[in-house]
């Protein structure tokens, strides 16, 4: 830490179009909203963009709309606001809980939904000071040509640690992206791919504008493990949604964060007869989660512990939702 802040120009657009234009004018420019992760990266020499485009003044990003099609939450809405929203707490409990659990209270005052969805992947070999990384010959994600986590592999294994993505994914959220060619909307799950150095599908000069949640249906919950109960990024986290059908069965949706380079929707064993919850179902559920995730040595905590914890949390949440 304690590197000098790099020099940059802060551009302050007031509309999404102006922000897109600013990105086009300054190749390599980086978007900045709350800055809770970005400023730390700048200080560590992990990013030196020359131009920052400040999204805080773009009023259109801070709106929330509730319609019969569901809830549209602007990318600039802060996590503290999301955590305090009644519509979110009632209709999408996992989303409220995830927002409430991010970092510490002063981070949540400024950290935004868009920032958390676009959060850079993290690794114990990456989130270090310049001199630390230099003495280790850098790494695949930044300046180097080897991944210290998996030296024989050919991709970066840094883990995605955003809390909002899995919570939104179990509710079937989509995201709205604006760019030079207009607006597009994709399933949030399709926004990510499994490469720590390039984990989000955002074209150059594109901006995440909002998340769309379908009308409330399933109940849901979110839980994570971390070293300290506050401030820390998750070692692993899981969101579970439970849709109880009229015929007495329960359908679960599970999404995991912190274990892979992207938030992961887990394939599940099938429906559960909610009238008679059975141990075999939950045992299979636990195994499925263990099989799906692939935590690596990206944190100081052993991958195996994170694998077992996240599967145990899944079962705990699923049982609680029945």
């Amino acid at each position: 830490m304690t590197e000098a802040m790099p020099q940059f120009q802060l551009i302050e657009p007031s509309t999404v179009d102006e922000a897109v234009a600013a990105l086009q004018d300054a190749p390599g420019a980086v978007l900045c909203a709350g800055g809770t992760d970005l400023v730390v990266q700048l200080r560590q020499g992990l990013s030196d963009p020359g131009t920052l485009v400040n999204l805080s003044g773009v009023a259109a990003l801070s709106t929330v709309e509730e319609t019969n099609k569901g809830l549209r939450v602007g990318a600039g809405v802060t996590l503290a606001e999301i955590a305090g929203m009644e519509a979110v707490a009632n209709g999408y409990p996992a989303v409220a809980k995830a927002a409430q659990s991010v970092a510490g209270p002063s981070h949540r005052e400024v950290a935004t939904l868009g920032g958390n969805l676009c959060l850079d992947t993290r690794c114990v070999y990456f989130n270090q000071s310049h001199w630390w990384r230099k003495s280790n010959s850098f790494c695949l994600k930044n300046r180097g040509d080897i991944c210290h986590v998996a030296p024989k592999g050919n991709r970066c294994r840094a883990a995605f640690s955003g809390d909002m993505a899995p919570a939104l994914m179990v509710h079937g959220a989509e995201i709205e992206i604006a760019g030079a060619n207009g607006v597009r909307r994709i399933a949030l799950a399709d926004f990510y791919h499994e490469d720590g150095a390039e984990h989000i599908n955002l074209e150059p000069c594109e901006i995440v504008v909002a998340a769309h949640l379908p009308p409330p249906g399933p109940t849901s919950d979110y839980e994570k493990i971390r070293v300290r109960g506050s401030i820390d990024f998750p070692l692993a986290g899981v969101a579970v949604a439970c849709n109880k059908l009229d015929d007495g069965t329960a359908q679960f949706t599970v999404a995991v964060t912190g274990t892979n380079s992207k938030p992961l929707l887990v394939e599940l064993p099938g429906d559960l007869n909610a009238e008679e919850p059975n141990d075999a179902f939950f045992a299979t559920l636990e195994k499925q989660v263990q099989k799906a995730v692939s935590p690596q040595r990206t944190t100081t905590i052993a991958p195996h512990y994170r694998r077992l914890s996240v599967s145990a949390l899944t079962v705990r949440l699923a049982e609680g939702l029945l």
Partner: peptide
């Protein structure tokens, strides 16, 4: 707010 990660310009 955390002043060590807040830009004065903002």
């Amino acid at each position: 707010r955390l002043s060590c990660i807040t830009l004065t310009a903002k």
